[in-house]
Simulated scan of single mutants.
Amino acid sequence: MLREKLSKYNIILASGSPRRQAFFKDLDIDYEIRLKEVEEIYPKELKGAEITDFLADLKSQPFDNELTEKDILITSDTIVWFKNEALGKPKNYEDAFNMIKKMSGKKHDVITSISIKNKNFQKIINDTTIVYFKDLSDEEINYYINKYKPYDKAGAYGIQEWIGRIGITKIEGSYFNVMGLPVHKLYDELLKLD
């Protein structure tokens, strides 16, 4: 269904994330991957989804002069939003440990924004999932970081990994959003393309 709808477009995924690439394969659409380096810096006054909206747009800007009407460029960004603070990707072991320790026994939001763009238009959508962690022991946190090295993940964890299985007690919203892409929302937006 979606495949036929998009057959007249060149779908470009600007993401090096293996999880996002897998989601695109699962959607059964033809796409290509194009990557451009972007320094992910945002104005400090932004909060929550304003940050991910800004960064999803920022990631799309280096492509502006090369997009045609037939291109559909998709960029996205995910953060963990905890107690009025954005937790991005950890810089090192200590940073990862501190992030997970902070969230232990508490809830946090995972926010992902997606920019859908071509030469003539842009639409930015976002989704929020609430995630609840049990009280995690230092041993559990250490084991997870040492074994899974979650340095490429916002908030220093992947819900699909060991820590998600033993540590997450409940989620409210999309599981796939926590993995980095609210696939249901992207699917609905792509269906709306003329």
Rank of each mutant, 00 (worst) to 15 (best):
T78D: 12
N65Q: 15
H108I: 01
L13C: 06
I72A: 02
L27I: 02
P62E: 10
I74Y: 07
L87H: 11
L35T: 02
D77C: 08
N92R: 11
Y93H: 13
D71K: 06
I74P: 05
E94W: 09
S17I: 08
P18S: 03
I12D: 04
A56V: 03
R34M: 12
D71N: 13
V38W: 07
D30E: 14
E37W: 09
S17D: 12
T75D: 09
P62C: 09
R34E: 14
S15N: 10
Y93I: 02
E39P: 05
F23C: 05
K83Q: 15
E37A: 14
D30S: 13
K102N: 13
G16D: 15
V38D: 05
N98H: 13
L73S: 09
D57S: 15
F54C: 02
E40Q: 06
G105F: 06
R19I: 03
S17A: 11
F54I: 00
E66H: 10
I72F: 02
E45Y: 14
L67Y: 06
V38Q: 07
R19A: 06
F23Q: 10
N84V: 06
F82G: 04
P62Q: 09
A22T: 14
K59R: 11
I33D: 08
I100Y: 03
K101P: 01
L73Q: 08
D64N: 15
A22C: 11
A56Y: 07
F54G: 01
F24I: 01
E45M: 04
G48K: 08
I41D: 11
N98M: 05
E45A: 06
T52V: 12
I72P: 04
D77W: 08
P62N: 09
E66C: 12
D109T: 11
D28R: 14
K59L: 04
K44A: 14
K91M: 14
W81C: 04
P43F: 00
E45C: 03
R19Y: 12
V80D: 05
K59G: 05
K107T: 15
Q61W: 12
D28L: 12
Y93V: 01
K25E: 13
I72R: 01
K83L: 13
L46W: 01
G88P: 13
D77S: 07
D95S: 10
H108W: 07
K102H: 09
R34I: 09
F63C: 06
E50W: 00
L87W: 08
K36L: 07
I33A: 02
E45Q: 13
K47L: 08
D57E: 15
I100F: 08
G16Q: 15
A49R: 11
D28P: 02
I74Q: 08
Q61P: 11
I41L: 12
D53M: 05
T78Q: 14
N98W: 01
I11S: 00
I29G: 00
W81S: 02
D57F: 14
L67M: 06
A49V: 03
S17C: 12
